[in-house]
Amino acid sequence: MKISKSITKDEKKLVNKMFWRSMTMYASVNPVTMGGGGFAYSMMPFINHFYKNEEDRKLALERHAQYFSTTIPCSSFIMGIAASMEKDNSQRSDFNVESINAIKTSLMGPLAGIGDSLFWGVWRVVAAGLAINLAYAGNILAPIIFLVVFNIPNYLCRYYGGLLGYSLGSKYIEQMYSNGLITILTKAASILGLIMVGAMTISMVKFNTVLTLSMKGKEIMNVQQVLDSIFKGIIPLLVTLVCFKLLDKKVGVIKIIFGIVVLGIILSLLGIA
């Protein structure tokens, strides 16, 4: 493959390790960081290879344990780019570490969109259609054929995606640093990231109140409609911003989670939601 030419043998080994580890990205899936734990796990070979200093390793681990979510076949591409940026960071002192997570966040939305529709919307349906017919005919190979047909592109995309991401990153990120384009790229990536986070705030954080005000058995006010008429998605937006403020004030994540649980039960007890 041409794309792997610019990578040394050692680096290729690291990319391979990352490929295997990236399989398990969603093993520790959770609503707070989604695949963050798996992302950090996948980045560990690089982190240990590039950083000799214990403090740098800790920072890198924390960086990659943050929220991350994308369609899994596309994840290794982003990991590859992130790995190449970690390499740059370990080599130069003027590296802006914030650009790493900015690029990660800006890529995960678009890649999830493409990957979801391609792998789950199209390819899974094709594979399943094939297997269903075989299974109806009593062919015991049906499940195996389903898995093989679905997973070959799945794994190929992940394997070559990782190599591609790493070699692209190695080639261009260094260049961009030299000519100062990286600040522009980081800003553009952050903007795209923010737009995606805004959109996900509405699509993933959900709240509907069932509260209605009625008079003599007639409904006079549907509170959700009133909320919607003020601003659609106002509650998810406010909850997200409050969480953001709390995190800023160094309130622990676990406290915020339990706060939300208590809030949910109180709202339910009061018949609001």
Partner: peptide
């Protein structure tokens, strides 16, 4: 109540992303 809370919980993840960006 748990379902309501579960639906609100991704807000924490979003807030963490916001802190980065």
């Amino acid at each position: 109540g748990l379902t309501v809370a579960g639906n609100l919980l991704p807000a924490v993840g979003m807030a963490m992303l916001l802190r980065m960006l």
